[in-house]
Simulated assay, not measured.
Amino acid sequence: MIYWQLFLAFFRIGIFGYGGGPTMVPLFYTECVKKYKWVTEEDFTDNLAVANALPGPIATKLAAFIGYRVKGWLGALVANCAVVLPVVLLMIGLLEVIYQWKDAPGVYGMIQAIQPVIAVMTAVLTWEFLQKGWKGSKNKSGVSITLALSLVALLFLNWHPGIVVGIALVVSFAYTTWAVRKQKKERSKEGVL
């Protein structure tokens, strides 16, 4: 039963995730956190961040993580196959049709109409992540500075998002390592006194 639920959930994500990774993330969230409660919001957020930092399509990484969480290696395989299957079938079945009709006004209009929906879905998910990050942070000024620097790097300096994410990972790792060492030193000094 659980394998069938995994297959259906990820197959739906694959079908309705038109446009790739960014459009699929809200669908992953709805199916896996809200509907089936396979992972918590915190786990989803953390693994989304790691998945964004790793190379490759985000859909397969999230599917593998959640499938593995639910039913181990077989769950990861079922989830990955289910999320990829709709795309493979549609690509094989519709590639020639789309190529022949790509300049038709109706087809062009449909493609243009879906883009605002994708933008709104992504904006809502971004807002929810920002709220969670803000509430969960002990250092509000650090979150504000990180957000501002990221926006400057992405919007004004035209840095690749992968570079920004990589820098954020290195800086956060260095800061966390420094903070843990500082706490250990303080604890050892208190223990000595």
Rank of each mutant, 00 (worst) to 15 (best):
P55R: 06
I167P: 10
A9W: 04
T30Q: 14
K35C: 02
V165N: 08
D103Q: 14
N52M: 07
A174G: 08
H160G: 10
E41S: 13
N47Y: 11
Y29R: 15
I98F: 10
L89G: 09
V87Q: 11
D103K: 15
P22H: 09
Q5L: 07
V192T: 10
E96Y: 10
V120M: 11
L94S: 15
K37C: 03
Y18Q: 08
W159A: 12
I92T: 11
R187V: 02
V170L: 15
G162A: 13
G136Y: 10
Q131A: 12
E42L: 12
H160W: 03
M121W: 01
T177E: 00
M24Y: 04
G56E: 00
G142R: 14
W134E: 08
L8C: 12
E41I: 01
R187F: 05
E31P: 03
N80S: 15
G142C: 13
P86L: 02
A51D: 00
D103L: 08
V192K: 13
G166S: 13
F11H: 10
G17W: 00
I13L: 07
V180K: 14
M1W: 04
L27S: 13
L125M: 15
P55Y: 02
W134S: 14
L151Q: 09
V165K: 14
P86C: 05
P86S: 11
A82C: 10
Y3R: 11
L6F: 01
S150Y: 04
L27F: 08
T30L: 10
E31M: 07
P55D: 06
L151F: 06
K185G: 03
K138T: 15
W127S: 13
V25P: 01
V97C: 07
L89P: 04
F65I: 06
K132P: 00
L48G: 10
I114H: 14
G67R: 10
T45V: 01
L85Q: 06
K34M: 00
I98M: 06
V84L: 08
N139C: 07
K185N: 08
K102H: 12
W73E: 03
W159L: 11
I163L: 09
V25E: 05
G93R: 13
N47W: 01
N158K: 08
T176E: 14
K35R: 05
S137N: 10
G106L: 00
W4T: 07
Y18E: 02
G17P: 02
L149K: 09
K189I: 04
L193P: 02
F11K: 11
L77V: 09
V39I: 08
R181D: 04
V117C: 06
A53W: 06
V192M: 07
V84K: 02
P161W: 06
P55G: 12
A148H: 09
S141W: 10
S137V: 02
G136N: 12
A174E: 04
A64T: 15
L94D: 07
Y68P: 03
Q115W: 03
P86V: 01
T40E: 05
L74I: 14
T23M: 04
I145L: 09
I145R: 11
K61R: 06
L27T: 04
N139G: 08
H160I: 03
A63T: 02
L8A: 14
Y68A: 15
P86H: 05
I111Y: 11
Y29F: 11
I118Y: 02
